[in-house]
Design a protein around this nucleic acid. Structure first.
Lengths: 211, 211
DNA sequence: GTATGTGAAACCGTTCACAGCA
DNA sequence: TGCTGTGAACGGTTTCACATAC
């Protein structure tokens, strides 16, 4: 159960397992084996068991895992048994789409603030939020107890957005801008970068051995 | 120069190098060493040299790489020296945002069609495209020579979108729906899944050893 | 002198295979 | 018997270190 060096990719898979366990639970499935869950998630059964072993023993030999129980345990490991307060920086097309995306709320992530530089957008209402000036962000982020920042500004503004968020005490950032951002060691940035993925597709449809 | 088993992650890094080489080129930089480029990209210098070695020798010992030349070579390797025709499936908030995202066009990806099931959205004009019925997709995808599909529908519809795209001859898909999709072996799917990334952030801000 | 290209070593994550337990 | 939990083997990527070339 004790652990050093749990790879990020294992955490990503735990999130995947949780997602699929929730689906099984919705279907009324009570138990699942690593083999079946692995099949659903597209991974190796031993992989699932190894990933879980980082954190404890959650199964019953000869039987498998109780869906509800394992789901709860994984959600707990991931820190999903709390509501996370998010601030959005950049309310353009993508930002607005993220604000409206219902799947965030369901999973315990709540936008409590949305900030913009463009005066034309300030004051807009999206969902139950009013877009506010980027200049006023710092105190509001503290006041609203924002823990995670979501950056949906264009590349040239992304670093400034990070700096301000960090300044305001945020130390987790989801970045949609296609740039390498700098931050202190205790701040975590996850990049969502579909430009890179498109290029991978381009390569695969181009390369001699397409497979 | 010949090669088996080039890892996906190496391809992703090539895309990253290309992006940063383009920035250097814009700044008028003519030459760059693997050390400097590595610093910019946040990777190890040997990593860059190894990645490039899969495809050839592009540098000059004692000097480094000519920025323009290396950029061209990488773009060529990735298949970016052509225009790719994209079809969007699902013109909700996210889909519309993607259509409007200028960065796609700049890099040689062009949306030539946008498709929807929701009658309320059919007929809308976004940019220079008119949203068309999902039912009419197959012939139009063929006619417009679509090579890549972008899926921005909600999860329950994503598999159907894949099936229709594949049926119409598309074999590269960028998927934004948070589900595992099935497809033939010769079709490539890249997933963009920020739900998983948010959970990684949640974990990192929750786990005992936050670092 | 300087920086690339590359075999070799180190590292890390995945998979196997089986002991342990219900 | 069946499936988990896990040490050990495996495979692949990353990094090192140096010969090579400018």
């Amino acid at each position: 159960m004790k652990s050093v060096n749990i790879p990020d990719i294992a955490i990503t898979r735990l999130s995947l397992y949780a997602r699929n366990l929730a689906l099984l639970d919705q279907k009324g499935v009570e138990m699942v084996s690593s083999a079946r869950l692995a099949d659903i998630c597209g991974v190796n059964p031993a992989q699932i068991r190894k990933d879980l072993a980082y954190f404890g023993e959650f199964g019953t030999r000869g039987l498998g895992y109780y869906v509800k129980e394992l789901l709860y345990e994984i959600r707990n490991i991931l820190g999903l048994e709390k509501k996370w307060h998010l601030a959005l920086v950049g309310v353009g097309g993508l930002g607005a789409a993220l604000l409206r995306d219902a799947e965030f709320v369901n999973h315990g992530y709540i936008f409590v603030g949305a900030f913009e530089k463009d005066p034309k957008r300030i004051g807009m209402r999206i969902g139950d939020l009013t877009v506010q000036s980027f200049k006023t962000m710092t105190p509001l982020v503290r006041e609203k107890r924002v823990e995670l920042g979501v950056i949906a500004v264009s590349s040239p503004w992304a670093q400034e957005a990070v700096d301000r968020l960090v300044e305001a005490g945020v130390n987790g950032i989801l970045n949609f801008a296609p740039v390498q951002l700098q931050c202190p060691h205790d701040v975590h940035i996850e990049n969502v970068d579909w430009g890179l993925k498109l290029d991978v597709l381009s390569y695969k449809l181009t390369a001699p051995t397409s497979r």
